[in-house]
Write a protein that binds this DNA or RNA. Structure first.
Lengths: 338, 338
DNA sequence: ATAGGTGCGGAAATCGATTTCCGAATTAAC
DNA sequence: GTTAATTCGGAAATCGATTTCCGCACCTAT
């Protein structure tokens, strides 16, 4: 049986409350007894019961990480976000709980919010996102959405400046002479990825290009969907000469589709991915890609959430961090090739 | 303030204990009142306090996931293991807590074990592993080591049959005419990766090759270390014609080193990686690699751990799952090229 | 009619800490 | 020398559930 505060109390012939105060650096305890208590605690191997202190303090020092991708392999993407978040939590003495959210399970989410098992939530994309946000707004629990920019003014998020980097990407393509630029998004994320498509359309107009809706496409979540979409794009009467995709794995599928069609990248079709995953470096040719600071997004989101927890009056965290365009050979031939 | 069992009790004019029993399907409660209680609970929006029930039940239904990689980016590797584990936990109503273990912090580990915040632990590799196992054996807490095979008979682990697949890999290389085969391991994991090097040496002997110790190497954890090691191997008087590495990213560094030396893969040097990461498909040439069923390792480990928790008398989980050799063009030219 | 079940629900202890309130003892103040 | 202030530590309530033990009411058997 574990050593409790009572054991220390009877060992030292003191009251349990005294032990608690001594260990928690409360006032009204003399230095002498404080030292005695600490020594006894170490000697007896005392560790406070997490459940007991959670109950009494009404705080668990735990944050839930909600994610909901189903088919897509988002290992590296997710782990960069999570790493940033976990490290920030660690510094503040908080732990992170993983909550996979597959399918539609509102009861589960409601339960998580109301049992007090976590103090706040971080939300990573997935088809659940829109629904989850709606639900969470009704609950008391603080939460922050990762890597999405939201319009509702009260919802917290930490994202990257996709609008600006989309501008850079399109500008980059235009400088290379492209004017038929396609967009390949992803269905699962659709509702809340509208910010990305929106930027795409907006930027095209800004630079004076018209938006050809037949070039604004969306792949399903199943593997190979990007390949299909690209295939169809190439079959158009007037196919695109450049493609902007929302995720590197999707870009890679597009790359394969182009190559399999007997065309070459970047000469016939230029391709830009997103997230700068490790694999984007080793494709043939290497991918030009948008690099959002995922780990920092995770970190800043966690920091914002913890701030909101410690002080009710803190305004929502709405942060947009700079993203970079990493230029490789899927848009510009030559250069640093491997 | 949240709705408690007392609120339901006074609402229905019953005793709190009755509410608890009704909700938890205890006997000695009539169906009529049981129904009334469930309805009232739903009506009032009751959710049990996790902390309170954890305290009383002495169970948290949480498992800790300990990991300790520092510099290496192990996103995809880790997420495959974690996904398997989390999904299995989910099915049993358990949650997973993430514990990054950076550097040497035995106090932290001891605390995790003794505060009762988790019921058991899953351990993913890292330089902490050997130390952590030693420490955990002294604590009461059940734990299972992922993707390592251990000699001590009482330690639980779930791993892949690396010995067998190493045999297949070496056999594959020998069939291709190689007889100077190098090994590139990784320092950070050294102590407990001895099983892998051991298999390497063992298999070489089994097939009648002598072990040239100058070809058995180890890269540090810093990025670029694999590149350096490969470079040195190529500088040997009698350089290897094939390399077996312990992780795909390392294999990719070796690949770059070979190419940069003006040699070609697989003609001059054949390369075999491990883990079958996504990026191993898109290198030039694509990597032949060992594919361990990482998600299943995670799943089986979690299942084993939960079994041990529910029944003290269950023997240690010591599982070795089959691994496959995925043959691509880093060993055999031609074939399905991209 | 009485003893013995049985079914249903309540009272109270408990899990292990935190926290409030109180009191004794010592010191300071006048 | 009496009162006030201060310091230190204890008693008991509390967090919100679970669980043990008990007792009433009703039924059955003799």
């Amino acid at each position: 049986m574990a050593v409790t505060i009572h054991d220390i109390a009877s060992y030292l012939d003191l009251a349990p409350s005294t032990i608690s105060k001594a260990l928690n650096d409360y006032p009204h305890i003399s230095t002498a007894t404080r030292v005695r208590v600490f020594e006894a605690a170490r000697e007896l191997g005392y560790y406070p019961s997490a459940s007991a202190r959670n109950l009494r303090r009404r705080r668990t020092e735990r944050i839930g990480f909600l994610y909901g991708f189903i088919t897509v392999d988002v290992g590296e993407y997710a782990s960069r976000l999570i790493n940033g978040a976990v490290n920030a939590a660690e510094k503040a003495g908080y732990n992170v709980l993983l909550y996979p959210l597959t399918g539609n399970q509102p009861e589960k989410l409601t339960r998580i919010c109301n049992t007090g098992e976590v103090e706040g939530l971080l939300l990573m994309g997935g088809e659940h996102l829109a629904r989850s946000i709606n639900l969470l707004q009704k609950e008391r629990i603080p939460f922050i959405v990762l890597n999405r920019q939201l319009d509702e003014p009260d919802v917290s998020f930490v994202s990257a400046d996709y609008h600006k980097v989309t501008y850079e990407a399109i500008h980059h393509l235009i400088e290379l002479g492209h004017n038929r630029i396609a967009y390949v998004g992803q269905n699962v994320l659709e509702k809340l990825n509208s910010d990305r498509v929106y930027s795409f359309r907006q930027v095209l107009r800004e630079v004076g290009l018209s938006v050809d809706e037949s070039l604004v496409t969306s792949a399903g979540p199943e593997p190979g969907a990007g390949y299909e979409v690209m295939h169809k794009l190439l079959d158009l009467a007037d196919p695109p000469t450049a493609v902007l995709t929302i995720h590197d794995p999707l870009a890679i599928e597009c790359l394969h589709a182009v190559v399999d069609a007997g065309l070459s990248v970047p000469e016939d079709v230029a391709i830009i991915g997103s997230d700068n995953l490790r694999e984007s470096q080793s494709t043939k040719p290497p991918l030009t890609t948008i690099h959002p600071p995922l780990a920092e997004i995770g970190r800043r989101a966690m920091e914002g959430l913890l701030r909101q927890l410690s002080d009710e009056s803190v305004p929502p965290t709405r942060l947009i961090l700079p993203a970079k365009l990493v230029i490789r050979q899927s848009t510009v031939a030559g250069g640093e090739s491997r």
